[in-house]
């Protein structure tokens, strides 16, 4: 009875656009869905450091090297903000990381694709960050205060990421023949996986309805995907890059770019762990975690010794 009354009050608060704070009463499902979603978002930032990190040591000039390093560093920061936001819901970071490393928790499938050329760094900034920004701009308005604030900070910091990506894309597109070939080949590989980033189509998305009900999500996967395509196609045209989709065409009536069918088999296969890089990504994270254990233990042991010393 009590809970039903609280639930009704909670729904009213959501309806009024109020922000929910850590100590507020919230339904268990709301808490659970948030933890799942925020930790998944955090894991994506951390695993997402790997494909781009792959090119930090090979960036072609000093400016690019610094920009890429700063960008990947930002991703570490964003992972940290998001873990902190999830921690306000009563889960600790270590257990979230354990869930990631054991394969229990998911992260964005896009990072299970390899970065094979320097052009991939431009394309990730342009398409992958572009897609992420569309998503995070929505999440900055989500009903849970700490998550919404984390996303706000992330969006503010990420505005340079997409720009640096597009700058690389444009430079290559206006470069030598080899560079033009490099960028088009990269776009061909990343276009479809980028569209998959928005998740399954609305009718197949099990979590979407509930997240929308809780006002964690405000727009549907398909709406966001469409927004992304509409934004991106003109940017490709501006630098004479094509997308590998024969069905891509502008619909005068709706004012939207129509696109072909996404290969959902590929989408589900990669989610289930069978993308080109799933194993390698997890092995890299596990190795960092294991190799770092003695360092974390050392700092903790030192802190304990000093505390004892201080107290005596």
């Amino acid at each position: 009875m009590e809970d039903e009354k609280k639930l009704a009050e909670f729904q009213t608060r959501l309806k009024n656009g109020e922000s929910i704070e850590p100590k507020d009463w919230m339904p268990e499902r709301y808490r659970k869905q948030l933890v799942r979603m925020i930790s998944q978002h955090a894991h994506s930032e951390i695993v997402g450091m790997l494909p781009e990190g792959n090119w930090i040591t090979r960036a072609p000039n000093l400016r690019r090297k610094m920009a890429l390093l700063a960008k990947v560093q930002d991703e570490a920061g964003h992972g940290l903000y998001l873990y902190s936001a999830a921690e306000t819901l009563g889960v600790d970071r270590e257990s979230m990381i354990n869930d990631l490393l054991s394969g229990k928790a998911k992260y964005s499938s896009i990072f299970n694709y390899p970065t094979l050329t320097w052009a991939d760094i431009g394309v990730i900034g342009w398409l992958v960050d572009g897609a992420a920004i569309v998503n995070q701009t929505m999440l900055a308005k989500s009903s849970y205060g700490p998550y919404s604030r984390a996303n706000l900070r992330i969006c503010r910091e990420e505005n340079f990421h997409k720009k640096q990506g597009y700058e690389i894309v444009a430079t290559l597109a206006n470069g030598t023949d080899a560079q033009r070939k490099m960028i088009q080949e990269s776009v061909n590989r990343w276009w479809w996986p980028s569209l998959m980033m928005f998740g399954p189509t609305d009718k197949d998305s099990p979590n979407s309805a509930e997240l929308t009900k809780w006002k964690v999500k405000i727009h549907s996967n398909d709406d966001l995907r469409q927004r992304f395509v509409d934004l991106t196609v003109p940017q490709a045209k501006a630098v004479n890059i094509t997308f590998p989709d024969p069905d891509l065409k502008f619909n005068e009536e709706t004012g939207h770019w129509e696109f072909g069918e996404i290969d959902w088999n590929e989408f589900y296969r990669v989610i289930k762990g069978y993308g080109p890089m799933n194993r390698e990504r997890m092995n890299a994270r596990k190795k960092a975690h294991e190799d770092g254990r003695w360092v974390r233990e050392a700092a903790e042991a030192y802190a304990k010794k000093k505390k004892v010393l201080h107290e005596n």
């Binding site: 940290l80 903000y81 902190s84 921690e87 600790d92 970071r93 270590e94 984390a150 900070r153 254990r293 974390r296 700092a299 903790e300 030192y302 802190a303 000093k306 505390k307």
Partner: peptide, 28 residues
């Protein structure tokens, strides 16, 4: 396996108050 959590407050300019920025983990 987890360092304790800390809350961080930043002062953005002279005379401004320290405001909560977020949290992090650190051993000391």
């Amino acid at each position: 396996d987890q360092w304790p959590m800390w809350e961080v407050f930043l002062q953005s300019k002279q005379g401004a108050p320290h405001e909560h920025a977020g949290s992090l983990h650190a051993p000391d």
